[in-house]
Design a protein around this nucleic acid. Structure first.
Length: 677
DNA sequence: CAGTGAGCGAGCTTCCGCTTGACTT
């Protein structure tokens, strides 16, 4: 029997279907060894030697792997074909080698039978042919790639486990955290909020002309210029994460708009009618990031919800793997999609050449395919069975449409732009577009209404019925949402598909950020921690930090650099900064929210402070007075036990509940308002 | 369901990335 080890049990099941009885497939369930949680686990004095342990929750799975390996004649490591996958394979090999050494000792054999005989295979799609091809061409473990992963792991540990304690000390809160990914995520939100705070909204005006031709059709056109000078102004702002552009105009107030309107002189002549064909191509099939963005935009799902639903769809065999940064589609799917589209809609909906998409992201690791339906012909209405509900169906529908549409013909529009000139040099423009061929929009649906404009001809004279001024104000850059933050993180190469959703939970749990109406806003704590870290560790908090790290990891993977010097080069100055910061940095005091109330025990002022579990009411006379009280929205109901206020609270798992403000003196609590009696 | 901050200085917290159940109400 030959043992094949993959990462996910779903993949194992699929492989079992393809392969004969001589193969047994087991899943590792991701990484099987890691640095210990309770200590640094990196020997900074001795070449950053990491000490790995098998985490408690992985022992069961590791024992299953050991057991299977003992019974196998051969072990084939078939984890994902990327940096993390190579490392998983390496650690499994180490664990099994140790086992074999022990077995050999026990049996007093001088050779360990399966020692070092692990074969490594990698495949990018789970098809019978791809797997057979991979099995026919096994390789050995890529130690350089493993070292690149080790460098990544060690760097993240060093950064996270030395910055966090510094925060505990300097901000007097022993539950804070910092890291290469989360701290930059918070910084993005903080920098954006500052941009919004300092943004000065300005008034500007636009003018629309309503024209009548000889027919009864009215034509509305926007005033764009006078004697070639444009009114519209594009404002460009340099933000932390790139450029932001917004619109304004040189018409700054109502008075100016009125002067322009009074100055408009007939005749108003159609000076140009430009018709052209505009083509639109379908977008690439989903990656984790784009799926989260679209599910947020169209279905109002959080990143977490999207991933939970996708996980289920994946486990039930409806979609391919949902944690991916690849936009590749298997050849099989492409040809099936073309056949499906041709058969159901007609040959003209199939492009002459099949579409291939390129992954933009430089850091993409391409271990998986894009997210797509496993069966082209299975539309969303065919999956609503068993545990699957409407949300599963809606997400599946998004995935199905996007993947199938990606292999369809382009949509063609007839676009028309009409130019109208006044007798004294004012230029109005309007444009419309009419769909000529739906192409992929047949499946995706149209996101914008067609704008049909009346037929007019060059030289035709129009009457200006009315000129309508409209007031606007310039808009600040928008706050981040989960979706737009994921988008930016992905663009900057920060974080991975498996971590986008957890990042959101972390920065909210740490109370660096609050989510209001889908918008992410920094808390006082978020501002304070970010300012502190930016002041003392500007390079770690900078966007290019991860990009530089990735370059180094690539160099390690292809043998140009060794991992220890790469880490040493970072760690030396970093460690110096840490030491220096312990010495020189002042303690950071957070602004406290005042409430107009005296302490019932000592009479000093009460304030609102932030603790591990959120805001709480505390006495300014601390530590002499240790009075605390729950902070929370009052439910306006007296406590049935003690008559105190009932307050809306959140449990550790984030669920709302009602508790007595006199806790712990009074322990009354209830889940529902109706239960308070 | 359920605690919070200081400083003493025992015994903990904290990172990112790969995977699912195992938990609770």
């Amino acid at each position: 029997m030959k043992l094949i080890i993959v990462e996910s049990p779903t993949k194992a099941r699929t492989l079992t279907r393809f392969l004969g009885k001589e193969y047994r497939i087991e899943a590792s369930m991701g990484h099987v060894r890691d640095l210990p949680k309770s200590s640094l686990g990196v020997d900074v004095e001795h070449d950053f030697a990491p000490s790995y342990i098998i985490p408690r929750d992985k022992t069961k799975q590791v024992n299953a792997l050991k057991d299977a390996a003992n019974k196998a004649d051969e072990v084939i490591l078939a984890t994902d074909p990327d940096r993390e996958g190579e490392a998983i394979a390496f650690h499994i090999a180490e664990i099994l080698n140790e086992m074999n050494d022990k077995n050999a000792k026990k049996k007093k054999k001088d050779t360990a039978s399966a020692q070092g005989t692990f074969r490594r295979i990698a495949f990018h799609e789970i098809t019978e042919s791809a797997i057979n091809e991979a099995l026919a061409h096994p390789r050995t473990l890529d130690v350089q790639l493993v070292n690149a992963q080790q460098a990544r792991r060690v760097l993240d540990r060093l950064v996270g486990y030395t910055l966090s304690p510094l925060l505990w000390k300097k901000l007097s809160k022993r539950w804070l955290s910092a890291g290469r990914v989360q701290s930059v995520a918070v910084r993005l939100i903080v920098e954006r909020e500052r941009e919004i705070q300092k943004f000065e909204a300005r008034e500007y005006w636009t003018i629309a002309g309503q024209f009548a031709g000889d027919g009864k059709d009215d034509l509305t056109a926007a005033l764009v210029s006078k004697d070639g000078e444009k009114y519209e102004k594009t404002l460009v702002f340099e933000l932390f994460d790139g450029k932001y552009t917004t619109t304004s105009s040189s018409i700054v107030d109502g008075q100016s708009a009125k002067l322009i309107i009074d100055d408009l002189r007939a005749p108003f002549t159609v000076s140009a009618v430009d018709k052209k064909e505009v083509k639109r191509n379908p977008g690439a099939p989903y990656t984790t990031s784009t799926l989260q963005q679209d599910a947020a935009r169209k279905l109002y799902f959080s990143s977490k919800k999207t991933m939970q639903i996708a996980q289920k769809l994946y486990e039930e065999g409806y979609i391919t793997y949902h944690r991916t940064d690849s936009v590749n589609l298997s050849e099989k799917f492409i040809s099936e999609a073309r056949e499906y589209v041709g058969g159901s809609l007609g040959a003209h909906f199939v492009p002459a050449e099949s579409r291939r998409f390129k992954t933009k992201s430089k850091v993409a690791q391409e271990a998986h395919e894009a997210i797509r339906p496993t069966v082209v012909g299975r539309k969303a209405d065919k999956i609503g069975v068993g545990d699957l509900n409407r949300d599963h169906m809606r997400l599946y529908e998004l995935i199905w449409k996007r993947a199938v549409a990606s292999q369809m013909a382009e949509a063609i529009f007839d676009s028309t732009t009409i130019v109208i000139l006044s007798g004294n040099g004012y230029r109005f423009e309007t444009s419309g577009s009419v769909i000529k061929f739906e192409g992929f929009l047949k499946i995706m649906g149209r996101d914008a209404e067609e704008v049909v404009i009346p037929a007019v001809s060059v030289g035709q004279e129009l009457t200006l019925r009315e000129a309508i001024p409209t007031q606007h104000t310039t808009s600040p850059p928008p706050r981040y949402t989960e979706a737009s933050l994921v988008k930016t993180l992905e663009e900057k190469g920060i974080g991975r598909p498996s971590t986008y959703a957890p990042i959101m939970s972390t920065i909210v749990d740490r109370q660096y950020v609050v989510k209001e109406e889908k918008k992410l806003m920094p808390t006082e704590l978020g501002f304070a921690v970010t300012d502190f870290l930016v002041q003392y560790f500007p390079n770690v908090l900078d966007l290019p930090f991860t990009a530089h790290m990735e370059d180094d990891l690539d160099a390690i993977a292809n043998g140009e650099k060794k991992w220890v010097p790469v880490i040493a080069e970072f760690y030396k100055p970093f460690h110096e900064s840490i030491k220096k910061t312990y010495d020189i940095a002042e303690k950071v005091k957070l602004a406290e929210e005042q409430i107009d109330e005296k302490c019932p025990t000592c009479g000093h002022d009460l304030v609102i402070r932030t603790g591990k579990f959120g805001k709480f009411v505390a006495c300014t006379n601390f530590p002499e007075c240790t009075y605390t009280r729950q902070y929370g929205e009052k439910a306006n109901i007296p406590c049935p036990k003690c008559g105190g206020d009932i307050i809306v609270k959140k449990s550790k798992r984030g669920k709302k509940f009602y508790g007595c403000s006199n806790y712990p003196t009074c322990t009354f609590a209830a889940w529902k308002k109706e239960d308070i009696k």
